[in-house]
C-alpha cells in the first residue's frame, strides 16, 4: 500500500528547511503559502528521505473566498504520497509559481488550471488556454461562472 505521510511531520520538515512556508497542517494535508510552492516542491523532490519524484496531479478548488491549489505528490522508490495544498485568497489576478521546472508533467495541468479556474502560473513557458479557445470569456470552472456571457 502507498503510505500517506502524516502532514504534521512533513510540515515540520518543510518548516526546518524553508522557514515560514507552512501555513497550517493536519494529519493528512499540509497547507503552504502559495508563493513558496516552488521552493517547497524543490525541497520535497530533492530531499533524499522524501524524494517525491512523481507529480500525480494538480487540482484547483474554488471555495468562493479563496482558491485552493492541491498537489498530489508521490515517491516511487519509497511508495509514499503527500497532499500539498495552498490557499490563494481573492478572485482576481491570482498568480502561483509554476513547478514546470521541476516536473514536466505539470505543464498541461497548470495550463488547465489557468484555463478553467483562472489562476495563472509565473514561470510557465506557455501560459495560455488549453481546452478552450483564445478569447473565451471567463473561466468556466469557477463557482460564479454560470453560463457563458452573451
Amino acid at each position: 500500500m502507498t503510505t500517506v505521510l502524516a502532514g504534521d511531520v512533513i510540515a515540520r520538515r518543510i518548516e526546518d528547511s524553508i522557514p515560514g512556508a507552512v501555513e497550517e497542517s493536519t494529519s493528512r494535508d499540509v497547507w503552504v503559502k502559495p508563493e513558496t510552492i516552488l521552493e517547497v516542491c524543490r525541497f520535497l523532490k530533492g530531499d533524499s528521505a522524501l524524494s517525491f519524484d512523481y507529480l500525480v496531479s494538480i487540482s484547483a478548488v474554488d471555495y468562493i473566498e479563496y482558491f485552493e491549489m492541491v498537489y498530489h505528490l508521490l515517491s516511487m522508490p519509497n511508495n509514499h504520497s503527500l497532499v500539498l495544498k495552498a490557499k490563494c485568497w481573492g478572485r482576481e489576478d491570482l498568480t502561483v509559481p509554476s513547478i514546470t521546472s521541476l516536473w514536466q508533467g505539470a505543464d498541461f495541468q497548470e495550463r488547465e488550471v489557468y484555463d478553467l479556474m483562472g489562476i495563472s502560473f509565473s514561470g510557465h513557458y506557455n501560459m495560455k488556454r488549453i481546452m478552450l479557445w483564445e478569447g473565451f470569456p471567463g473561466h468556466p470552472q469557477r463557482k460564479d461562472y454560470l453560463e457563458s456571457p452573451r
Binding site: S57, S59, V61, Q109, E112
Partner: peptide, 16 residues
C-alpha cells in the same frame, strides 16, 4: 460533488 477533478492518464501521457 462540490468539485470533481479528473486526473486523466491520456492527457498526462502526452506530456513527453
Amino acid at each position: 460533488p462540490y468539485r470533481f477533478k479528473i486526473r486523466s492518464p491520456s492527457l498526462l501521457n502526452l506530456s513527453a
